[in-house]
C-alpha cells in the first residue's frame, strides 16, 4: 500500500519521539463519542490525572457513528489496539445510538474473533462525562494489556 509508505515518511518528519507503534510502544486509537466519553477524557484533563500517552482520540458525534470500518482501518494503519467508547446505555445524547451500535459491535466482534483477530486488541467501554477516572483506568489497562501481548501480530489485517 503506497499510502502507508507516504504516511510513514511523514511520521518520521523530525518527530522522532512519536511512539513507534511497536508492540512495546504501541499505537492505540480510541473512537469516542462527543458527549460522554470525550467529556470524560476532558475531565481527566481538568483534574490533572495522568495516563498513558499511547492513545490517540478520534471524536465522533456518537457511538452510533462509529462504524466497524473504522476499527478495521485503524488496524490496517498499524494500531495495536482499538477502543470504542461512548455513553452508558440509557445516556446516549441521541437516545439510541449506543444501543444500535452495541448490537453491531457484539456481532462484529464475534466475527473478528472467529476470523483469528486477537480480541484483546479491541476494547469497548461506556464512560460518562463524569468518569474521568474510568477513562484513565481504561486507557492504562488497555495499554498495559496490549504491551503484554506477544510481539507477533499477524492477523488478517497484516500485510505479508
Amino acid at each position: 500500500m503506497e499510502d502507508m509508505k507516504v504516511e510513514k515518511n511523514e511520521q518520521k518528519d523530525g518527530t522522532a519521539a512519536a511512539n513507534t507503534g511497536s508492540q512495546s510502544d504501541p499505537r492505540l486509537i480510541a473512537f469516542v463519542c462527543n458527549w460522554c466519553t470525550y467529556n470524560g477524557a476532558d475531565l481527566a484533563g481538568t483534574s490533572r490525572m495522568k495516563y498513558s500517552d499511547n492513545v490517540r482520540v478520534i471524536k465522533l458525534p456518537c457511538t452510533g457513528r462509529i462504524d466497524p470500518l473504522f476499527i478495521v482501518e485503524a488496524f490496517k494503519k498499524g494500531a495495536k489496539g482499538v477502543l470504542v467508547s461512548g455513553c452508558h446505555p440509557g445516556d446516549c445524547h441521541y437516545t439510541s445510538g449506543n444501543y444500535h451500535s452495541r448490537r453491531k459491535y457484539a456481532t462484529f466482534r464475534d466475527l473478528l474473533g472467529y476470523l483469528g483477530v486477537d480480541l484483546n486488541r479491541v476494547e469497548f467501554s461506556w464512560i460518562s462525562a463524569s468518569e474521568g477516572n474510568k477513562w484513565v483506568a481504561v486507557i492504562n489497562e488497555f495499554t498495559d494489556k496490549i504491551k503484554s501481548l506477544p510481539d507477533k501480530t499477524t492477523d488478517i489485517f497484516t500485510k505479508k
Binding site: 474473533g113 472467529y114 476470523l115 483469528g116 483477530v117 480480541l119 499477524t154 492477523d155 488478517i156
Partner: peptide, 9 residues
Amino acid sequence: TEEKNAYWA
C-alpha cells in the same frame, strides 16, 4: 487465535 488466523489467512 493464531490457528484461526492461520486457517483464514
